[in-house]
Design a protein around this nucleic acid. Structure first.
Length: 178
DNA sequence: CACCAGGTTGACC
DNA sequence: GGTCAACATGGT
């Protein structure tokens, strides 16, 4: 969940270092973050960029979870749809981050649609916005969490190698809205 | 030095 | 309802 916030518009390699720093400081948990000082969190996650806004977002998420569910454990028995709406109500958490938390954090079969996925679908001639593509993937994928995680991971890996700026200029799909 | 990165929000037309 | 800058550091 913490990684989902930190990776917003940021390479995962930089996020890993921030998470390692949080762990070494004993602050890599929802409760610990809620009770930490903002300055300390800022220093620890600096290497993941946007450290001030991300610190705020971590606090928003942490206090929301503690206040609403009493902790991460309290989220386990709730239905996925309810959790998703709940997460989306947190300032700084949009659809991708919410699905990322559900899929990779809580093991729910809620497919993550990121900018790469939309871009690749455009390259492949598959139209539709995030909502349409999410439904399409969820109809196709087997209802196993491993399948959801791997499919997303494979798309990101593929995009890094083949859908970067140069190649995408070739297939004219730079504009995600067009 | 220029450009980009798995996103979200709020301001402005 | 669409477009755009802000957020900030690290890598190529």
């Amino acid at each position: 969940m913490i990684g989902a916030i930190l990776t917003q518009q940021t390479r995962w390699e930089n996020v890993e270092r921030a998470i390692q720093a949080l762990k070494e400081a004993g602050l890599c948990s929802i409760r610990a973050i809620r009770d930490a000082s903002p300055g300390q969190i800022e220093d620890l996650i600096r290497c993941s960029g946007f450290y001030r806004v991300k610190t705020h977002r971590l606090f928003h998420l942490a206090s929301h979870i503690m206040d609403t569910y009493g902790g991460v454990q309290g989220m386990r028995k709730k239905p996925t749809g309810e959790l998703r709406a709940s997460l989306l109500s947190v300032h700084g958490i949009g659809e991708e981050t919410a699905d990322s938390i559900l899929c990779f954090g809580l093991g729910r079969t809620s497919f993550v649609i990121d900018a790469y996925t939309i871009r690749i679908c455009r390259c492949a001639g598959i139209p539709g916005d995030r909502t349409v593509l999410k439904s399409a993937f969820e109809e196709i994928l087997p209802a196993r969490i491993g399948a959801y995680r791997q499919a997303h991971a494979h798309i990101v890996e593929y995009a890094k190698d083949y859908c970067q700026k140069k190649r995408c200029d070739t297939c004219l799909v730079r504009n995600l809205n067009g």
